[in-house]
Structures are given as C-alpha cells and as structure tokens.
Amino acid sequence: MRRLLTLWVLGLGALAQVPVGQVATRDVHALLWLPDGRLLFGHHDGIQASEDEGRTWRDLVRKTGFDAMGLVLERDRILAAGHWVLSESRNGGRTWRNLRPRGLPALDLHGYAASGGLHFALEATHGYFVSEDGGKTFKSTAPKGLPKAGMAAMVFQGKTLYVAPMGQGLYQSPDGGQTFTQVPTPEREIYALAAGAGTLYLGGKTGLWQRTPAGWKRLWQGTVLALAAHPQEAGRLVFIDGQGRVWKLP
C-alpha cells in the first residue's frame, strides 16, 4: 500500500509539470540565458530569442548554414560558434560580425567556452585550441587527460573548465585546459552543460542533473539537448528536450 501511494504521489508531480513552449527547427544546439532576462537559442539556421522564458521565440539570425552549436557570453559580447561559424555581437544580438582569429586552421567548431579572456575550442578536424587574448589568436593544444572527440559540450564555472566529449563522460580542468581529470557522472552521454550561481548542471540522454556536495541529483527524467542556467538566480533553469519542448525549473 505504501509503495502504491508513493507512485501515486510521484505521478501527480509528473502530471503537474508541463512544458512552457516549443521550438520548431531542424536541430537543437545551444541555449544561453542573458542578464537582461532573454533566452537565446542556437540551431542549424541561426539564432532565436525569447523574452518570456521560452514560451515564444523570434528570429535574431535566420541564415542557412549559420549553425550556432555553441552560444557563449563573455563580458559585453555574445559569441556564436559552430559549423563554419564564429561570430560575435556586442549589442545583444541585433547585429553580428564574423571573426577570423589567427591560429585556427578551420572554423568547424564543435565546442567552445570562454571566460575572462581565456577561450577553449574544439575544431572538428584539428582538435583542441586555446586562446589567452579573448579569442584573437589561438594555439593548438593537447590537454593532458582529455580524450579526443569530434564534438563536446563545454562550460566555465569560475576558473574551472568542464568538457564533456560526446559519449565519454565529463572532465574538469583547474588550469585553463592544460590538464584534465575525469568527474564521475550518472551517465556518459552528455549533451549540454550549464553553470549558474556556483552550481554545475548537465543534460544527457536520461535526464537533467545537478552537482551537489553529496553527488549528482536528478532534477528531471528524459533527454535534455540544450540547457541554460539563470545568470544570477540559483536553481532557475530552462532546457529543451528531445522533442523540441521547452521546460522551465522551478
């Protein structure tokens, strides 16, 4: 009887939680929550913005092949990195400028993170690259302890860089991407990472997870393709599932 009651209560909780919106694109790649409250969503043909936490979306960039696989906020600029795309906006996404940094042999970028002038990138053919001047110049790097990958989710949490090579779990680096150690995680297939208010979150094939001092806590069950944490308010998240539905926590 106690088990039946527990399942009934859990079922009520699941029914009470409904998606707030839907995205309709070919691909779901990246989410970014800006300090002004807007959400940016990167997909295969551009970038969309939401001013109501994911309920409705409008185009910021609509261009075939503008594949925004990663969206990064660094100080006053937004960076979009992806398949043959590396662009920046310094006016909240209204206009964009293509970047051609020195040292990157190609711009097929399958992972990108930036913090305080330090940039870390994964180029699909040529591997990992690091920049110490805000992305103006890059140099090739072979990070100790980080496996090779064709695609990876990346995020800085303070000075610590987290990288999740596709299908290979999670790794952390305290020294800007020079050396990495593996972080135990509840699943190896990780699609998205987010750091908000001192907390690390990951989205993968089976759920949305929060890192706590006691270990990983599952916040939601199901596939999470893109994830964003509120830049100031702890615990507030928006994510997109495998069917393109937009969810908000809490």
Rank of each mutant, 00 (worst) to 15 (best):
G70E: 14
T56F: 09
E51Q: 14
I78K: 05
T64Y: 14
D52E: 07
D67W: 06
R62V: 13
L71N: 05
G70L: 15
R75N: 09
R55I: 08
F66S: 00
Q48H: 14
R62T: 15
T64M: 15
T56L: 05
G65Q: 06
L73K: 07
W57F: 04
G54V: 06
R62P: 11
K63L: 14
S50I: 12
K63C: 12
D59N: 13
E53D: 11
R77A: 07
R58C: 08
E74L: 03
D67A: 02
R77G: 10
T56K: 01
W57R: 02
E74G: 04
T64L: 15
A68D: 09
E53W: 10
L60A: 02
D67M: 08
V72G: 00
G54Q: 04
G54K: 03
R58T: 12
R58D: 11
G65C: 05
V72S: 00
G70Q: 09
G54N: 09
L60M: 00
V61R: 09
E74S: 08
K63W: 15
K63Y: 15
E51G: 13
M69Q: 10
D76I: 09
L73T: 01
E53I: 13
D52K: 05
A49W: 13
D52Y: 07
I78T: 07
D52C: 11
E53G: 12
I78P: 01
T56E: 11
L60C: 08
D76R: 13
R77K: 12
R75A: 14
R62Y: 11
W57Y: 08
D67T: 05
G70W: 11
D76C: 09
E74Q: 00
L60K: 00
D59V: 10
E74K: 08
D59P: 06
D67I: 05
D52G: 06
F66L: 02
R75P: 10
G46N: 11
L73S: 03
R55V: 13
G70M: 15
K63M: 12
A49C: 07
M69C: 06
E74H: 03
W57Q: 02
A49Y: 07
G65Y: 11
I78L: 05
R77Y: 15
I47E: 01
G65W: 07
R62G: 08
M69A: 08
G54A: 04
G46D: 04
G46K: 01
R55D: 12
L71M: 04
T56C: 06
S50Q: 00
E51T: 15
M69V: 03
L73D: 01
D67Q: 05
W57H: 12
D59F: 12
A68W: 05
V61M: 01
G70F: 15
I47W: 02
R75D: 13
G46P: 02
W57L: 02
S50R: 01
V72Y: 03
T64W: 13
G70Y: 15
D59I: 09
L73N: 03
L60E: 06
R77I: 13
S50E: 06
V61A: 02
